[in-house]
């Protein structure tokens, strides 16, 4: 089941088309929403939440219509905004408990739940301090806690590592990964940081100029067309190349003892052919694997 299903969605700010005929089904699990600055990621998130009205198109989030059932959407969704946000004058626990009450929890359960999520998000004793005194990392954590407090089935995280130092970033990514992979909550992470997405997500949706450019599993996106193989020999061998060519395999490039070769066969068959070529050339194979590219390369290709 798709956690969010959008059909021909267009969103306009005056004459500027922020989303242009956007059609996409976000699968369950942890999905990264990738795109350069101004691509339409945040607009997409805000449209999912019903903050902006689409000029055309339809969509559902967790089965609820994004234009007609906004309250229902927000009941099922937790949102962690990109900007700093808090309720003025409240302590951490007061803030999160109040967010729980807004989501419809009875006040005693909202308070209990606030303590649970703050503990989970690592805010410890700081929860009793006024939120305005928090560091950037703590503010990010409390934003995550308020998004989690009512037990949403889908979390929308807008740039969750914004402004964090490397340690804080690692901890935040661990939390996001644990929420999606350990706690069974669907997550859509909106970010322009490819490493963050690669670290936490299984699927990505690439948005560029308000349009869907690419969608799929990260492993599939990183895979190169034609299933090339990367081979590492103990030493470079000209005979190995000759043997490869004899077997109708194509040498894409060679860097010392590293080779990237391609055949029209399946990966298993290609692997066998590589081993045969090495045996015939008297070369020793250290490793071979299906060649992949970085997510960055895949992303750049998608937005080209």
């Amino acid at each position: 089941m798709a956690v969010a299903d959008l059909r021909n969605l267009s969103v306009q700010y005056g004459s500027f088309l922020a989303l242009n005929d956007f059609t996409c089904a976000f699968p369950e699990g942890c999905v990264g929403l990738l795109g350069p600055n101004g691509a339409g990621k945040t607009t997409l998130i805000k449209t999912l939440l019903g903050f902006v009205d689409p000029a055309q198109g339809t969509g559902t989030v967790m089965g609820a219509d994004i234009t007609r059932e906004r309250r229902e959407v927000r009941r099922r969704v937790g949102y962690m905004p990109e900007q700093d946000c808090h309720f003025p004058g409240l302590s951490g626990v007061g803030f999160v408990a109040y967010a729980g009450e807004l989501a419809g929890l009875p006040s005693n359960q909202a308070l209990r739940r606030a303590h649970e999520v703050l503990e989970y998000c690592g805010l410890g004793e700081a929860r009793y301090r006024n939120v305005e005194t928090y560091s950037t990392g703590m503010k990010q954590r409390i934003k995550l806690a308020q998004a989690l407090v009512h037990g949403p089935r889908l979390l929308l995280l807008d740039e969750p590592t914004n402004g964090l130092d490397p340690k804080g970033r690692e901890e935040m990514l661990d939390l996001v990964r644990d929420i999606s992979h350990g706690k069974g909550v669907n997550v859509i992470v909106c970010s322009h940081l490819l490493k963050d997405i690669e670290r936490t997500c299984d699927e990505v949706v690439v948005v560029f100029q308000g349009q869907l450019r690419r969608q799929g599993n990260i492993r599939d996106l990183k895979r190169l067309e034609g299933v090339p193989m990367d081979v590492e020999l103990k030493e470079a061998s000209a005979d190995f190349v000759t043997e490869l060519l004899r077997r109708q395999m194509l040498l894409i490039h060679q860097d010392s003892n590293h080779y990237r070769v391609q055949s029209d066969q399946a990966p298993d068959q290609s692997g066998r052919m590589i081993l045969e070529a090495a045996r015939a050339a008297g070369a020793q194979v250290r490793s071979y694997q299906v060649a992949t590219r970085s997510l960055e390369d895949a992303f750049l290709e998608a937005i080209r």
Partner: peptide, 18 residues
């Protein structure tokens, strides 16, 4: 005004609160 200053509206309106 203070909600405007602290972006609290993002939290209010992302909950089931119109």
């Amino acid at each position: 005004a203070n909600d405007n200053r602290t972006n609290a509206l993002l939290v209010y309106l992302s909950k089931p609160c119109t």
